[in-house]
């Protein structure tokens, strides 16, 4: 075998080995958590309150807490994030101002989430306690908002940048205002991309633990209002594993978490494909 050919085989071998390694690890984790966790999942597990600090009972409050937190975070972050992206891409020209904003969002995206948690704790939980209820879904959501804003802004900007200029010009040339053009042409075309940025950030919130450890409080009670403390599934998993040592309960929570994330991703993919088809 020639040297060139041998190198080709070595490269091929190493690359496929790397791929196999990745897949095996991924499948092993998935298999382990699912095989251990799935048998924990029952109707009671999903609908009952936890007992004995989560060592027994169900995970209902954590499921509800996750949904509330994600909903609240998106409700605040989406208009601000998409609005910022529209402003940056449609109304501002390249220059020092735009570069500064972009640098700030990039920097924000690179900050470890525990730092956001610390800020949220000091600012929302302690300083603004009379308004946020201290450790609460509101404090957690506001912290989550700061965390995912860069994700939404960057991805939405990207989606807006991909809208062909010919469409903007075509619309403006008909004697329409900039806002009408954005509303009727730019946003509908960019919508699938914006939506996927929002879904990406759902994943970020669902998976986040550190930031919410400091801002949600970790209450096991069923949250009634946004001023109540709560916990997310990720947080519940961490606390059950660390505080009660009941790994079965933690694995059951993990399985629910994985299923939830898969559902979100598949729905997102499905929506994305349908929307892209509709608009192209």
């Amino acid at each position: 075998m020639s040297k060139v050919k041998r190198n080709q085989w070595i490269a091929f071998g190493l690359l496929s080995l790397a791929t196999a390694f990745t897949i095996v690890i991924l499948l092993a984790i998935l298999f382990y958590v699912m095989s251990q966790g799935l048998e924990m999942i029952s109707w009671e597990f999903l609908t009952e309150n936890p007992r004995n600090m989560g060592a027994e009972g169900g995970i209902y409050p954590a499921i509800l807490g996750t949904i509330y937190l994600v909903g609240m975070t998106l409700l605040i972050a989406t208009p601000i994030g998409v609005g910022t992206a529209i402003y940056l891409n449609e109304y501002t020209r390249e220059g020092p101002f735009k570069r500064t904003i972009r640098f700030t969002t990039e920097a924000l995206a690179g900050i470890p989430s525990i730092v956001f948690g610390l800020f949220g704790f000091v600012f929302f939980v302690i300083l603004l306690e009379p308004y946020t209820g201290g450790w609460s879904i509101l404090s957690g959501s506001l912290t989550g908002v700061i965390m995912i804003l860069p994700v939404i802004i960057r991805a939405s900007e990207e989606a807006l940048r991909n809208v062909p200029n010919a469409l903007r010009e075509g619309s403006l040339a008909l004697g329409t205002t900039r806002w009408y053009t954005i509303k009727k042409t730019v946003l509908p075309v960019a919508f699938p991309g914006i939506l996927s940025s929002i879904i990406l950030s759902i994943g970020r919130v669902v998976g986040e633990t550190a930031a919410f450890l400091l801002t949600l409080g970790g209450s096991l009670l069923l949250p009634r209002t946004i001023f109540d403390g709560s916990r997310t599934l990720s947080l519940h998993l961490y606390m059950v594993a660390m505080e009660t040592g009941n790994m079965d309960m933690a694995l059951g929570t993990g399985a629910v978490l994985i299923i939830l994330v898969l559902i979100i991703n598949f729905t997102a993919g499905f929506l994305f494909k349908r929307l892209v088809k509709r608009f192209s």
Binding site: L167, E169, G170, S171, A173, L174, T176
Partner: peptide, 16 residues
């Protein structure tokens, strides 16, 4: 002005 002065572009650019 742009209402009074219409424009047709090089590449057809119908809205989606």
């Amino acid at each position: 002005l742009r209402t009074a002065v219409g424009m047709v572009f090089q590449k057809p650019n119908p809205f989606p």
